[in-house]
């Protein structure tokens, strides 16, 4: 078998391991799904009318706000599942299984790649559930099949980038709880973006941060794809730039941390 064949087979084995974990312990995935779903229901049914009235300047209409909020909630879901990845990696690192893997003739990168690919699959499934809830409560996207494909591609790209960062966070954390706390910004940042309200409704000093942080351009791009609103070159470029930057950073950070000897 070629040297390239070995890592591929190892990656598949590690992916299978992660998917088995996900199947055996669905509670972690469900807990992480719960936050975006609760926020979706809370913001639509409790704040929806008032939010809609504030955004449009007309009478409150909950259905208009559903259309506005769902793209942001979808990206928040990715942040939530990325926290799960950080916790899972930290658990692996502290429970001794990695020490066992290090002694085996397997590709080193495969352990991390298994986590990443497994998490991306889990994330896409979680996104399908959240999107289902969105559709059930009245979200009506008008995207064409091509736009849907691009939207799925965008969500996958964002997932890969955030999950690589989460893997790095999991590797530097002393335990699962520490990983959960360290990765918390991945859930908080969407709240400080254009997910729930337009950034121009925020105070000047804060607006700059909200506009240029990774989630806002990604949300605006997704919103444009699903609902036909203006995307703008800036948002598309920023989204792809952030995704590539975070992926490269997360990958090299994770690789460097993982390749260090356990004692060092």
């Amino acid at each position: 078998m070629s040297t390239a064949g070995h890592p591929f087979r190892d990656n598949v084995t590690m992916l299978r391991r992660n998917l088995l974990h996900a199947r055996r312990y669905p509670s972690l995935t469900l807990n992480l799904l719960l936050t975006p779903v609760i926020l979706l229901l809370l913001f639509v049914y409790i704040f929806g009318d008032t939010m809609s009235a504030g955004i449009t300047g007309g009478p409150g209409d909950r259905s208009e706000y559903i259309a506005y909020i769902v793209p942001g909630i979808l990206l928040m879901t990715i942040g939530g599942t990325a926290i799960g990845t950080a916790v899972s990696v930290a658990s692996d690192m502290t429970e001794g299984i990695i020490a066992r893997f290090r002694t085996m003739a397997i590709s080193r990168a495969s352990v991390l790649i298994g986590h990443v690919v497994g998490s991306v699959i889990q994330t896409l499934m979680a996104l399908a559930v959240v999107l289902g809830v969105g559709l059930a409560i009245g979200f009506r996207p008008d995207a064409t099949p091509v736009e849907w494909l691009v939207a799925v591609g965008l969500l996958a790209l964002v997932s890969v980038s955030l999950i690589w960062i989460a893997v790095g966070m999991g590797l530097v954390s002393p335990n699962a709880e520490g990983a959960s706390n360290l990765a918390l910004p991945l859930m908080v940042l969407p709240l400080l973006s254009s997910a729930f309200v337009p950034v121009d409704a925020m105070p000047g000093w804060f607006r700059w941060f909200a506009e240029y942080q990774p989630f806002s351009p990604a949300i605006e791009t997704l919103r444009g794809l699903l609902l036909g609103s203006e995307i703008g070159t800036r948002n598309a470029v920023l989204t792809v730039g952030w995704c590539l930057g975070l992926t490269v950073l997360g990958y090299f950070w994770s690789k460097a941390r993982f390749n260090r000897e356990p004692g060092s």
Partner: peptide, 22 residues
């Protein structure tokens, strides 16, 4: 802080009132 600075402008306008806003 979240409800005042991030969501307050929109929620305040949605509530109406004499001046609206944050």
């Amino acid at each position: 802080l979240l409800f005042v600075y991030v969501l307050g402008g929109i929620l305040g306008s949605g509530l109406g009132g004499p001046s609206g806003g944050r």
